[in-house]
């Protein structure tokens, strides 16, 4: 029970990060390997504002989200759009995008090490116990989970109910046909990429309340987010959330029963199972 709840709480924050990546990959078709760095930037912002001005991380979110949106929009327009135009097919774009976002992730890590140093950073926010079903958990974890759950639900509703959300889903399904019904695909791709980045950065601010991070931890989160997106299925919000929870529980199980140093091994075990048995994702249908 203890493992299950801790795992679900961790999985909830993973879901937020993975949703950001899924928006970027599913809609803009950019496999963004600098996603984890965006998370660390969000976490850094929360950390700095908290230690300098005692600003609650939950308020920082409202600052991080628009800034990350603009930053990611610029990244897409300036760096990635030329690649989309240059690519002759989806495979070429994938290779170019992977290399570019890799470069970008290294540049971001380098800049953060330069600016903040390579030390671990953490701060103490709402670090008092709270009792859930008879066991004690950190209040910060529970708050982070609730926060992530609200954001996931809002995103899910927005994608499924609003007109803009529908347009985004249309591009995710088929960029060629979306153009035919009057959707401005390049504009929407840029927006989806920016939105994805903003969601991930918010996830970073939330996760920084209970995890210790350093400038180069981003790649670990990128890995996990990628595994979640593939487990859940590209462009599938429900699948992503389910996959994130599965990964959170699986990791917590391995960490508490076998060894805390084996979390990535646990993620890989899940990844291999999915690749072997359901490469199209939890809710995906086999391509015909």
């Amino acid at each position: 029970m203890d493992i299950l709840i801790t795992g679900l709480i961790l999985g909830g924050t993973y879901a937020l990060i993975a949703l950001g990546l899924n928006l970027q990959y599913g809609v803009s078709r950019i496999m963004n390997l600098a996603n984890g760095e965006m998370l660390v930037i969000g976490a850094f912002a929360a950390f700095t504002l908290f230690t300098v001005g005692q600003v609650s991380p939950l308020l920082t979110i409202f600052l991080v989200a628009p800034l990350a949106y603009v930053l990611n929009w610029l990244i897409y327009r300036i760096m990635l759009r030329p690649l989309v135009k240059r690519a002759k097919n989806r495979g070429m774009l994938e290779v170019d995008a992977i290399l570019t976002t890799f470069g970008l992730s290294f540049v971001m890590v380098g800049l953060m090490i330069w600016a903040f140093g390579g030390d671990y950073f953490s701060y103490s926010y709402l670090a008092r116990p709270i009792t859930v079903f008879g066991d004690n958990y950190g209040l910060n974890r529970v708050v982070a989970f609730v926060c992530a759950a609200i954001l996931c639900a809002a995103l899910f509703l927005w994608l499924n109910v609003s007109r803009a959300g529908m347009a985004i889903r249309a591009v995710a399904v088929s960029p060629e046909n979306a153009r035919l019904v009057g959707i401005d695909v390049p504009k929407l791709s840029a927006r989806a990429f920016a939105l994805g980045g903003a969601v991930t950065a918010v996830g970073g601010a939330v996760i920084s309340t209970f995890l210790t991070l350093d400038a180069s931890t981003g790649v670990m989160f990128t890995m996990k987010a990628l595994i979640i997106v593939i487990m859940g299925g590209v462009g599938d919000v429900r699948g992503t959330i389910l996959a994130a929870l599965v990964l959170g529980v699986g990791e917590t199980f391995v960490a508490s029963v076998i060894d805390p140093g084996l979390t990535l091994v646990a993620a890989y075990a899940l990844f291999i199972l999915i690749l072997l048995f359901r490469p199209q994702g939890f809710f995906g249908r086999k391509p015909t």
């Binding site: 290399l99 890799f102 470069g103 971001m108 330069w114």
Partner: peptide, 20 residues
Amino acid sequence: PNQTTLLLGLSFLAIVYLLP
């Protein structure tokens, strides 16, 4: 020695944009 990551990233970008 402290900027190796940054420079590695810049070389990645340089290859993609300048020397495909």
